[in-house]
Design a protein around this nucleic acid. Structure first.
Ligand code: MN
Ligand code: MN
Ligand code: ZN
Ligand code: ZN
Lengths: 138, 138
DNA sequence: TTAGATAATGCAATGGAAGTGCATTATCCT
DNA sequence: AGGATAATGCACTTCCATTGCATTATCTAA
């Protein structure tokens, strides 16, 4: 059994051909990508299938969604220890307004914060936007 | 000159009837609201006008947009000291998955963070989602 | 190993929000 | 008051997200 196949298997996701391809694409892109990006890189696949594949991946802790402020949700692979119960990759995300790329800053953790008494935290989104290093050196 | 009128005036926005109404609605809602929310509370107005009104308000530091993870942008009035050059109300936002309400936690500032060398920060979005106090007491 | 149950896929269609072009109307300043 | 400029309303377009349903693939247990 190939590596990707066993990863999906471990996360309780049936390793279909389509899913292996989507996983492949996600792992080849160093930036976070949108559903449309995936669609463009996988001309054969139907958008609906991709949509539901990503949804499944998200639910099973394989990818995490990123709201980068563009209104288009991006996705990136999770750390190995994420699972269906909890996403544990709480890092910053950066969106460059010049090149439009959205990146996981996996080395930069979301800082601890307090929220008002009585509120329950389930998800945290910390996204910084501006100009990335590459675009800053023009 | 009424109070709202002078606020708009100070921010270099012509105080038209429509704009006064939009401002009114924003100030009456204690939560952040969407364009559609405004539309529903102002049946007479055309959506395009509201769209452009909000855009103008945003540019002139009257409202700030909030990406709460739903994909629908919400808006809330800024602090008095925001202006066209810079939004200075850097606080947390909370989105309740039960009642769907999005709130400004104006008392809770966005913590200082470091980002990688060479990156330039322009905007920061820090949104927590989960269950709000009200929904947590059911 | 095969049949039947269950899950995944593909197609077609819908919904909702964002955004644009242009003609008309209101506002403001001189 | 008059003319420049800005705001508004209407009609349309685009794009992404999402669903229903029929078909096909996958897995499991007999
Ligand atoms: Mn990430
Ligand atoms: Mn706010
Ligand atoms: Zn860039
Ligand atoms: Zn709530």
């Amino acid at each position: 059994m190939k590596e990707v196949e066993s990863i999906l298997h471990d996360k309780n996701v049936r390793p279909t051909a389509m899913r292996l391809l989507v996983y492949q694409i996600l792992s080849e892109n160093k930036n976070a990508i949108s559903l449309t990006d995936i669609e463009n890189q996988l001309k054969t696949a139907d958008r609906t299938t991709l949509y539901r594949t990503i949804k499944t991946f998200e639910e099973q802790g394989i990818v995490h969604p990123i709201e980068d402020g563009t209104g288009i949700t991006k996705y990136a692979l999770c750390a190995a220890y994420c699972n269906a119960d909890k996403h544990k990759d709480l890092h910053l995300h950066f969106h460059c307004k010049v090149c439009e790329e959205t990146t996981c800053l996996t080395e930069y953790s979301i800082p601890q914060i307090s929220i008002p008494e009585g509120y329950i935290t389930e998800d945290i989104n910390f996204t910084v936007s501006g100009v990335c290093k590459k675009c800053n050196q023009g």
